[in-house]
Design a protein around this nucleic acid. Structure first.
Length: 264
DNA sequence: ATGGTCGTCCAACGA
């Protein structure tokens, strides 16, 4: 089973490239972020033609997340359901859930944070806490669970092109990394790191300043798998070729392959 | 040379 996460930075602007990539790479489950579409503008028919069911949770101009699956798609859920009285995240389409091929999947777009002193940074930390709360309330860590998305956090210094340049910045701060670790402590692990110890392997490069060509990136897009799923991880990669060429997203797709499950 | 780009849609703003 091949699971992919990809922040496409506007599905409208990226649809042709996404279609081509799906055709060439044949993923089973795809988590998309930053579709920047309203639900009625989501091109479900395009994905259906490629053999994918889809669930989209959008708001229009910003954010927007989706799950595509060619191994079934059940029990879709938009956003958070635990603690419904909590109005900390009004209207932002940042999480979609579905069960695909026996795996409970989430496509997550964690808030950027902007600056460490910014309200948006506090929002980012609350969002990560809320994600953990949701998992505790709705999912089972002994089942197959994959939380995939743009976390806007580089888990450690190997995941940043120049750690010294990011001291005091978002994406690397101790509270963000602690919030990610707390999420993982529910029972998730970063599948990519089961296969690579190296630094210099990134999933996002700023469009500006030729950063991609200079190798100035960060690894902020993650596939987090529960133990039973992670144990079946056979390969992982970041397809940086997808960051090249005409009109790329600023993120590359992260690919994770898993051996079939026993019960699923 | 210490900036540099995209996306949303036409004015800034967000990343």
């Amino acid at each position: 089973m091949r699971i992919v996460t990809w922040n496409v930075n506007s599905l409208k602007a990226r649809l042709e490239r996404v279609e081509e990539w799906l055709t060439n790479n044949e993923p089973d489950i795809v988590c998309l972020q930053e579709t920047k579409l309203a639900d009625d503008a989501f091109p479900a028919i395009t994905f259906a033609a490629l053999g994918y069911e889809a669930f989209h949770h959008g708001e229009g101009r910003w954010n927007g997340v989706a799950i595509l699956s060619r191994v079934g798609l059940d029990d879709p859920q938009a956003g958070f359901t635990a603690s419904p009285g909590d109005d900390v995240f009004p209207g932002e389409a940042r999480v979609a859930w579905a069960t695909c091929g026996g795996v409970r999947v989430a496509s997550v777009y964690v808030p950027n944070g902007r600056e460490v002193d910014h309200d948006h940074y506090a929002y980012k930390l609350r969002f990560l806490g809320r994600l953990r709360t949701e998992l505790e309330a709705t999912s089972d860590p002994s089942a197959d669970v994959a939380i995939c998305g743009d976390f806007n956090i580089a888990p450690d210094d190997r995941d940043v092109y120049d750690p010294a340049a990011f001291v005091g910045a978002t994406h690397v701060s101790a509270p963000e990394r602690a919030a990610l670790a707390e999420l993982e402590a529910w029972g998730l692990s970063d599948v990519f790191r089961r296969h690579y110890d190296d630094g210099g392997l990134y999933s996002w490069w700023d469009y500006r300043a030729g950063n991609f060509h200079k190798g100035k990136g960060m690894r902020i897009d993650l596939v987090l798998a529960s133990a039973s799923l992670a144990q079946r991880s056979t390969a992982a990669l970041i397809d940086r070729n997808a960051r090249k060429g005409k009109a790329p997203s600023d993120h590359a797709p992260v690919v994770a392959d898993f051996a079939p499950g026993g019960a699923a």
